[in-house]
Design a protein around this nucleic acid. Structure first.
Lengths: 155, 155
DNA sequence: GCGAGAAGATTGACGTGTCAACTAAATGAA
DNA sequence: TTCATTTAGTTGACACGTCAATCTTCTCGC
């Protein structure tokens, strides 16, 4: 690593802003879900993904791929959610190694009651704050940054 | 909560992209630091903040305010970092309740060796991916979203 | 001074994520 | 068929963040 190109005063300032946002927004969403639905954002993601796959059962590995999570993360969370009675797992019929995930009645009830508040939060904070043009620009910028991360094998 | 305004197909798609980015980028940065400096991004933030405050010692609470972290989070992390010999804490001279944080020699060594690679990561992924104009737009958009979150007492 | 309440910080319990090691089932070449 | 390899998923150890409870020190009205 040769001599790095340090950030200018202005860039450093902007980076602090960006960093605060990138770490702060997920926390804020966790707070919204914890407050309004006594749920973590991870649990919400799982409930949403499994409910959207219904009536098809979702494979544990497909869930991991869809959320870009590690398998073990999925496994730990599913265990806890099964213990709470939100989902159930059973060996896949076509592949003895696979696990099919389905929502329990309580799981459906939970996601149905959490969804409106959560969708409102996303709409009001993200989509109502940006014009359609800005939304497109925002997407494009995120994709550029992500591509640079992917290029460095860190995504 | 009245009937929510659900997201359109297109908005839902965009939200998935945004969510993947907002959760993925911090993870990527953790990976960069873990790989290149055997350090978490939290530890880096602390080392950077304390080193920038030098030669002034930084108060634990000021650190929490600066990073927008909970006090207990700071306390837990400082305890672990003190155990590793990266920083030291001592009661503030002017306020018996406060803790003054300073870097140990190993702490300085660690931050000096981690900074170039980390700054390069930030520069290459964020600043090299966006034109100056885009950087400004990006900042502005993040601030609008953040303001909407703040308005809902969730920041 | 003094006592009530505010402020700085720590602690313990718990949920969560990562990594590495592991088990079991599927695959595929010899 | 058989056995090595790959793939799906789990597990345990550990690092981390949050919340609520706690402790100590400061502040300020009396």
């Amino acid at each position: 690593m040769s001599e790095p190109r340090w950030l200018s005063e202005e860039e450093a300032q902007r980076w602090l802003e960006i960093r605060e946002f990138l770490w702060g927004f997920p926390s804020a969403m966790d707070r919204q879900l914890a407050r309004d639905a006594e749920m973590s954002s991870g649990e919400y993601s799982v409930l949403a993904a499994v409910s959207q796959a219904a009536p098809q059962a979702l494979r544990s590995g497909d869930l991991a791929a869809q959320l870009n999570w590690e398998r073990s993360r999925v496994s730990h969370l599913l265990r806890r959610m099964e213990a709470k009675g939100l989902i159930s797992r059973c060996a896949s019929s076509c592949d003895g190694r696979g696990q099919d995930i389905t929502l329990s009645e309580a799981g459906w009830e939970t996601v149905r009651s959490a969804a409106p508040g959560h969708v409102n939060f996303v709409r009001e904070t993200v989509f109502d704050s940006l014009s359609p043009t800005e939304q497109e620009q925002f997407s494009a910028m995120l994709n550029k940054i992500r591509a640079a991360v992917v290029e460095r094998d860190l995504w």
